[in-house]
Computed example of a mutant assay.
Amino acid sequence: MPTPETQPFFDAAARGELRIQRCLDCGRPFFHPRPCCPFCASADLEWFTTSGRATLYSYTITHRPAPGFEAPYAIAVVQLAEGPRMMTNIVGVENTPGNLVLDMDLRVTFEQRGDVTIPQFTPVEVA
């Protein structure tokens, strides 16, 4: 469920945009949404739209599904082209170790889940 800090993230996702925050004092982008910069503690922040590009940093394949998911699926950490890492899912490819290669190029895609739209990532080759 979105909070006041995360509502702009979910509103953007519903429009098909991946937006994250950047500190206007130190200039560093970050994820997850929060009211102050995790690097310099400034509250002078802005939201910006990312490129939607990322690389696969790490993952695990789960065979015990959470509600609303079909196993197996990948729980992944991706490195956004803008720098921050985010936890997400990999879609559009069978989730096997042979298909999920670290540092592979990914692009964002979005899926409606209940009342919110969430960003997920798919390999660029699948695009």
Rank of each mutant, 00 (worst) to 15 (best):
H32C: 06
S42C: 15
P29G: 05
A41M: 14
C26T: 09
H32R: 14
D11E: 15
R34K: 07
H32S: 08
L18W: 07
C26A: 10
C40I: 10
C23Q: 05
A14L: 07
A13L: 02
A14C: 12
D44K: 13
F31E: 00
R15D: 15
R15Q: 13
F31Q: 05
P38A: 00
F39I: 14
A12P: 15
A14H: 06
A13Y: 04
C26N: 09
E17K: 13
R15M: 12
A14T: 10
G27I: 04
A14I: 13
C40A: 10
P35M: 02
D44T: 09
A43V: 04
R34N: 00
C36T: 02
A14D: 11
P35V: 02
C26W: 12
R28D: 02
R19T: 15
F39A: 01
A13V: 01
R22G: 06
A14E: 06
Q21F: 03
R19I: 10
G16V: 06
D25A: 10
G16I: 13
C23N: 09
C40P: 15
E17H: 03
F39Y: 10
L18S: 08
A41Q: 15
P38G: 00
A41D: 07
P33E: 08
H32G: 02
F31D: 00
A12L: 03
G16L: 12
Q21Y: 06
A14V: 09
R34W: 04
C40L: 12
R19V: 07
D25T: 09
P35G: 13
F30H: 12
G27P: 07
A13C: 11
A41W: 11
R34G: 00
